[in-house]
């Protein structure tokens, strides 16, 4: 009988411990850090965490330290391939420089989504629901 270990959350994540991981959160944030611990809810402990923001072909980083992340906010965990990381064709800039562009992108998207919801409401009678799942 094949081992059932891969079919548990613990089994899936055990070889990610002590590795540099990308964590994407439901609010759209992208964090990178070393995964130190997890549990069956995908609650995570991430050490030396860095938050990254992206805009076109440019990115910026901000050190955030030690995080305990509640599992319900996690979208995905990615294993960062340290070789491929050097090949990524993006330029790094200061956080203060990039942040306004990043915030504007978020605000624009929010405005587009609100406009879309109100048009669908007017034209098709679609209710302004909270969104899928918990909406993010």
């Amino acid at each position: 009988m094949d081992s059932l270990i891969p079919f548990t959350t613990s089994g899936s994540l055990v070889d990610c411990v002590d590795r540099k991981m990308l964590v994407v959160l439901r609010d759209g944030r992208k964090l990178q850090g070393v995964l130190r611990s997890y549990d069956q809810f995908a609650n995570l402990v991430l050490e030396d965490t860095v938050e990254r923001i992206y805009h076109q072909d440019v990115f910026a980083e901000m050190k955030r330290g030690l995080y305990l992340i509640r599992g319900e906010n996690v979208v995905l965990l990615g294993e960062i391939d340290l070789d491929q990381e050097d090949d990524v064709p993006l330029r790094q800039v200061d956080w203060e420089t990039l942040e306004p562009y990043h915030l504007k992108e978020i605000a624009d998207k929010k405005q587009r989504d609100e406009l879309k919801a109100s048009i669908l409401f007017e034209k098709r009678g679609f209710c302004k629901e909270g969104g899928e799942g918990d909406g993010y």
Binding site: K116, I119, L120, E122, K123
Partner: peptide
């Protein structure tokens, strides 16, 4: 999927 197309004139918005 329903897609919204916005026009200059709000009355011309289409789904």
């Amino acid at each position: 999927i329903l897609i919204v197309e916005q026009a200059e004139d709000a009355a011309e918005n289409t789904v």
